[in-house]
Design a protein around this nucleic acid. Sequence first.
DNA 1: GTCATTGCAAATCGTTTGCAGCGCC
DNA 2: GGCGCTGCAAACGATTTGCAATGAC
Lengths: 149, 149
Amino acid sequence: MVSVSNQEDAILSRLRGEGYKITPQRRAIVRAILSSDEYVTPELLLIKARQAFPSLGRVTVYRTLDILSQLGLLCTLHPEGHHPGYTLGRLDHHHHVVCSGCGRVSDFSEHGLEELEKRLSRETGFKIEGHILEFLGLCPQCQETNNEK
Amino acid sequence: MVSVSNQEDAILSRLRGEGYKITPQRRAIVRAILSSDEYVTPELLLIKARQAFPSLGRVTVYRTLDILSQLGLLCTLHPEGHHPGYTLGRLDHHHHVVCSGCGRVSDFSEHGLEELEKRLSRETGFKIEGHILEFLGLCPQCQETNNEK
DNA sequence: GTCATTGCAAATCGTTTGCAGCGCC
DNA sequence: GGCGCTGCAAACGATTTGCAATGAC
């Protein structure tokens, strides 16, 4: 298990290594993503990161997300009926389960898809380049909250 | 294999059955979706459907897509790097392969996911409600076009 | 004839861009 | 001290809403 502060360091030094400067804004944004186990939207991220850096501009959030995204540090999520959002990626290939109640994200690995890719290539003639696999459901906490109602 | 005109009738009578009126606009939109094997965006659909009904308004396209979507007749696609779009759904559960070149959509069935859902429920405690599984790749035609370059 | 449907224009939402000043390295 | 970064304001594209006229049944 990697601790959050280690993850933060890893991301920041990756940024530095790519020639980007480490500003308090970027630090606040990265920390805000790391501190939530829900997935984040730009708007949510702005609110969270402003707690640490109140004068943070909305534009900076978008620009930082762009950078992280280009470096492959973010995963995009498409929860049905919700706005698309982001969560921090791991280095290995993996997938997500998103809570439809609170947005909490859990991840898992699954390697059976390569088999399926081959079958699809054969059946459809497509040259497969990638895939999206996401599950939507209720996390344990939200299941309980639902039952209380 | 179900013919396109049968599909059209099926969709229109479903609409009628739900209390919606069959207008030439809706007919043109439904036909436009059916006549493309690529997935459609609202904008693209507007252009296509206007060939049959030139005075069609953009708003009507959005409203019709909403209705079809609520009735479960549409599938949403999330091709990476492109705008999200729609394709007509089949009644049974299935998934899509989208061409990153031209947007052509091919569909397939896969039942191995129920197994995976169970595993995830067990491992994460989430109550799984649904999933997205989409493949992105190049269709046979676009592979050829690429090679010619 | 009634009431859903339409299309326009305007409002709105999320995101991107131009630009002048600021601050990290 | 230079150049990348920031934040404002304005632009932008996609979608939604208010409303009066229209047309399907």
